[in-house]
């Protein structure tokens, strides 16, 4: 019986569908435990066995707390963790399996049918509800007094505004932070040993041999107020490539030093550190979303979701032979943001 016009309130799986008649609940077939007292006793013992196993598990957990007290080695922590795991698994699984077996085999397995009630109230309920609502409307006069109603709505509507306002101090405004980093004229390039080093290790141009990749942070980073915030913007990868292989833009010719070039490590897609440098292909790969940059072409994007090239840090050699920045990055580092073209980065 597939009706094109679905007029009925319910789907039609009632007594008759497609001409077939619902045969009604099948007769209950007794389980082995219902008819054989021996089977029932066996099952009972089985279930008790699971509960006993659970107790053994709990006791094992407690015992291993003392027996396998870890020393400072990872192996000992692993051992205790495993023993805890073993104890807890037995303790919990024992209770679980026992209970389920009990429910499956010993508790009555008869299927029961329960009638559904209609979801909506009957006509009388609906009439009473309507009456109550009407009465409330009349007694409060909410329909008759538009002035009260409208001013109330307006008052409630603007009441949360102060709450929004006090969230203002969640953070400072961006200001020029998106356009500046610690780099500037004469700031020396230092090796990044991880974290925030207390001492700067400057880099000599001659130490950056062809094929090298050096992870770089600016001089004096540890003295800044929030070194990690600064590192998040200023991290740089320094590479040296045979100058013959570089296709240098004439306008940026003096941004590198004899094939030594420095690029921001912060991906212009969503900001992961791009640091997978392949020294034969001169590709830089981001491990997060696979944007690939070509170092020989000013780190333009050759694959993946990033759009902008990695910003280049113009570098030079100072009088002591150390690599220094000529200026800050000529463009903002990291992911694209709305105001990106609204101002120049500082020239110094």
């Amino acid at each position: 019986m597939t009706s094109k016009q679905h007029t009925a309130e319910h789907g039609t799986q009632l007594e008759q569908v497609n001409g077939f008649t619902n045969p009604g609940l099948p007769e209950h077939t007794p389980r082995l435990t219902d008819i054989s007292p021996a089977a029932e006793r066996t099952t009972e013992r089985q279930i008790a066995g699971w509960f006993i196993l659970s107790m053994i598990g709990t006791i094992w957990f407690i015992v291993s707390y003392f027996l396998f007290a870890p020393d400072e080695t990872m192996a000992s922590i692993q051992l205790q963790n495993m023993m805890f795991g073993l104890g807890a698994t037995l303790a919990l699984f024992g209770i679980g399996v026992g209970l389920v077996l009990w429910g499956k085999t010993l508790v009555s397995g008869t299927e029961v049918a329960e009638d559904r009630h209609p979801i909506e109230g009957n006509e009388e309920d609906q009439a009473v509800a309507l009456e109550i609502l009407n009465q409330a409307k009349d007694e409060s006069g909410i329909a008759r007094r538009p002035l009260l109603r409208n001013t109330l709505i307006a008052a409630v509507a603007i009441a949360p505004l102060p709450a929004i306002l006090v969230f203002r101090d969640l953070g400072p405004l961006p200001g020029d932070k998106m356009f500046t980093t610690l780099w500037g004229p004469g700031v020396r390039l230092c090796q990044d040993p991880g974290g925030v080093p207390r001492e700067d290790r400057f880099i000599r141009a001659e130490d950056v041999t062809i094929g090298s990749a050096v992870h770089v942070i600016p001089e004096g980073m540890h003295e800044s107020e929030h070194p990690l915030d600064e590192k998040a913007k200023a991290a740089v990868l320094l590479m040296r490539i045979d100058p013959k292989e570089l296709n240098t833009d004439p306008a940026k010719e003096d941004w590198g030093v004899d094939g030594i070039v420095a690029y921001s490590k912060i991906c212009t897609h969503v900001g992961c550190p791009v640091a997978l440098y392949e020294h034969q292909t001169h590709h830089l790969l981001c491990p997060c979303h696979q944007s690939t940059f070509d170092v020989t072409n000013h780190c333009e994007v050759i694959f993946g979701p990033a759009k902008r090239p990695l910003p280049q840090l113009p570098i030079a050699v100072d009088s002591e032979g150390y690599l220094v920045a000529q200026r800050d990055f000529p463009e903002p580092v990291g992911p694209t943001f709305w105001e990106i073209n609204t101002r120049e980065t500082s020239e110094q």
Partner: peptide, 18 residues
């Protein structure tokens, strides 16, 4: 030595101790 595409970490970049 930086085999294949691996960058070279010479002794100035990572000292033998490092």
């Amino acid at each position: 030595t930086g085999p294949q595409n691996m960058p070279i970490f010479n002794d100035a970049n990572l000292t033998p101790e490092q």
